[in-house]
């Protein structure tokens, strides 16, 4: 187990490096470098251009150097916590992303927990009560959940709440708390708002998890080892919990790790529709105005977050499945 753990953690290091490479590619992808875009924007708006400031930025990010060198200059900066400069906000990227990233992580973690817990409970129920009314109801809901993209679900829910109660549920805080310092009341206010994005983001993944657990449970129930356990005299109540569920939960757990990228995707899009203080809005704005250091760093951080998630889920999986542990 320990060797597996170590191997899995070591394997994450090249992945993180690759993420950095991909992020740099994203940064370099639009034609021209950012300074030219920046200068063009300044010229258009008729603002004065501070040549000296430009020169500082140019040398700092090595914009006049060849591509490979630029990457290493940028990568060294990343390791030191310098993620580049946002030309749109006229601030270093590192100052912009902090709280937004944490809210994104918070919402994603909660949505994942929501998807896991309810996906598990409903999946077990549907698997054991195959073809019951509840099973059919959840199957229908699951199909619709899978077919409705997050942002549409968010829009439809917002609209329904707005039309019936006349309140707009967007955002994470009521206006009076948005810029207030942390207090108990602000925390309660957060709880009042956060459930909507959590449900919206979690539902799609939950639907997928239900299907996987249900299908696997149904497969496992017919396996010889279940019959063999029954033939030993194990009561059927214990039988379900102890044997097929224990095995069916393995593919569930392995998929559950991979819902994280999906959930982060959902958090980005939903954040825009629900007007949350997450990375969604600034990512879209950054991409639209080609503020690439900001956009690239955001993609990098979101990817790092999902990589950490999948590592955790792989470790969980090894703990659940001896076949992986002893490979």
């Amino acid at each position: 187990m320990l060797t597996y753990l170590l191997r899995r953690l070591l394997f994450a290091i090249p992945l993180l490096f690759l993420i950095a490479v991909v992020s740099f590619i994203i940064i370099e992808l639009p034609p021209g470098d950012y300074l030219t875009v920046y200068v063009m924007n300044l010229k258009q708006s008729g603002e004065a251009i501070d040549e000296a400031a430009l020169q500082v930025l140019r040398t700092r990010y090595g914009l006049d150097k060849p591509l490979l060198l630029r990457f290493f200059i940028w990568f060294r900066g990343v390791l030191k916590g310098d993620f580049g400069y946002s030309f749109m906000w006229e601030k270093p990227v590192s100052q912009l992303i902090g709280p937004r990233l944490w809210y994104t992580v918070l919402i994603s973690v909660l949505a994942t927990a929501f998807a896991w817990v309810f996906g598990f409970l409903i999946g077990v129920y549907s698997g054991i009560h195959q073809y019951s009314i509840g099973d059919y109801a959840f199957t229908v809901l699951g199909y619709i959940g899978l077919a409705t993209p997050n942002f549409l679900l968010a829009l439809i829910l917002l609209w329904a709440v707005y039309v019936t109660f006349g309140v707009s549920l967007g955002g994470l805080f009521s206006p009076e708390y948005a810029n207030a310092p942390w207090s108990w009341a602000k925390f309660v206010d957060l709880l009042k708002h956060i459930w909507l994005p959590v449900i919206v983001i979690g539902t799609g993944s939950m639907a997928g998890l239900i299907r996987i657990l249900r299908a696997n449970l149904l497969d496992e129930i017919e396996k010889p080892y279940v019959i063999a356990a029954k033939a030993r005299g194990l009561p059927s109540k214990e039988l379900y919990w102890k044997y097929p569920l224990r095995v069916a939960v393995i593919p569930f757990a392995s998929t559950a790790g991979w819902v994280l990228p999906e959930i982060v995707s959902g958090a980005v899009v939903t954040g825009i529709v629900l007007n949350l203080p997450t990375v969604g809005v600034i990512l879209v704005d950054a991409l639209k105005s080609q503020d690439m250091y900001l956009a690239g760093s955001l993609v990098m951080f979101l990817s790092i977050f999902t990589i950490i998630g999948t590592v955790i889920s792989d470790i969980l999986l090894a703990w659940l499945d001896p076949r992986i542990r002893f490979e």
Binding site: P261, V264, S265, L283, L287, L302, S303
Partner: peptide, 20 residues
């Protein structure tokens, strides 16, 4: 595995934004 661990929508967004 690597490609799948990158959140799809942000990646798509970044790539789509690069289309001239």
């Amino acid at each position: 595995e690597f490609i799948r661990s990158i959140p799809t929508i942000p990646l798509w967004m970044a790539l789509a934004a690069a289309l001239p």
